[in-house]
Nucleic acid binder design. Structure first.
Lengths: 153, 153
DNA sequence: TATAGAATTGACGTAAACGTAAGGGTGCAG
DNA sequence: CTGCACCCTTACGTTTACGTCAATTCTATA
């Protein structure tokens, strides 16, 4: 039940093999396409975030997996843990209004937003402190010869 | 050679015991004073960042240790690793101009400042993305009943 | 003297998201 | 048949800054 051979993988962008336009890709192509490593994809699967089909032992990623991976990467970008991402995705039900999922997502997002804002404040603080220290150090360097009220003991 | 007993520790702010105003404190008081745990102080010592005297096996922190701890905490605040902090402090020489130390410190600080600014940019990015996503989710929630172009598969 | 409070060393545990190496299989181009 | 190019699983390693026991000792105070 071979679907995509390595040699023709490149030319195989829209091969209709089994069903209609299922567009299955193996791990290598998937990784390249989304800028992650094979290890990462396997890791996400191990953590229950992805669930590719198999052709024997070979993973075949569907368009659904791609959508999920996009979400994972978005979640990662905004600072969610994989655990959070999983919680949110696990609530998805294709046959419902997904109100619960959306509410959970919104709730987590609000908290995450707060965390990000706090982080930004801390970083701004750090930048200010560091800038001050740097000014002081520059001072001391420019006065090297004068009495040292130096920096450490 | 008892210097500071636990009971009188509080009233003992400027006890002149051995030398003049040496102001030695034990680990408990040191920790309280700087808002760190005992474990942290011992850890810093283990890593060569602090070097308190000993009365038998009991650590006695001098004013020098306090100065160093302040620096460590400042370094930590601005995002330096303890390894970096140590490198900078290790270059301190009480009998010199400390030009090398200051230069290293400045160099590391510039790099750290760059890292902080990059981080801030990433966080700002994340905040924007997250805000957008939240708006979308709110949209979908407000339209719950309309066709779902929902969030996950 | 009994007890509570402070200190000591030693050493395993934790978190997060993978990295990396080992050992092995499949299939096709040459 | 060889050699790649891919793919697989298992499982230990990495990073940083401590947390959390555990078992023991010291000492001041009631």
């Amino acid at each position: 039940m071979k679907l995509v051979s390595p040699g023709e993988a490149a030319a195989n962008t829209n091969d209709m093999s089994d069903k209609a336009g299922e567009d299955l890709v193996r791990i290598g192509e998937m990784a390249k396409k989304y800028g992650v490593t094979l290890r990462t994809l396997r890791f996400y699967e191990d953590k229950g975030l992805l669930n590719p089909q198999r052709d024997g032992s070979t993973r075949l990623y569907t368009r659904r997996d791609k959508a999920r991976l996009k979400l994972i990467l978005l979640g990662r970008k905004v600072g969610f843990s994989l655990r959070d991402v999983k919680q949110m995705m696990d609530l998805y039900d294709p046959s419902g209004s997904n109100t619960k999922q959306l509410r959970l997502t919104l709730d987590k997002s609000e908290k995450q937003l707060a965390r990000l804002q706090k982080q930004r404040a801390l970083i701004d603080d750090a930048i200010n402190e560091l800038s001050n220290s740097m000014a002081a150090v520059r001072q001391m360097l420019s006065e090297r010869s004068a009495p040292q009220a130096s920096v450490a003991g």
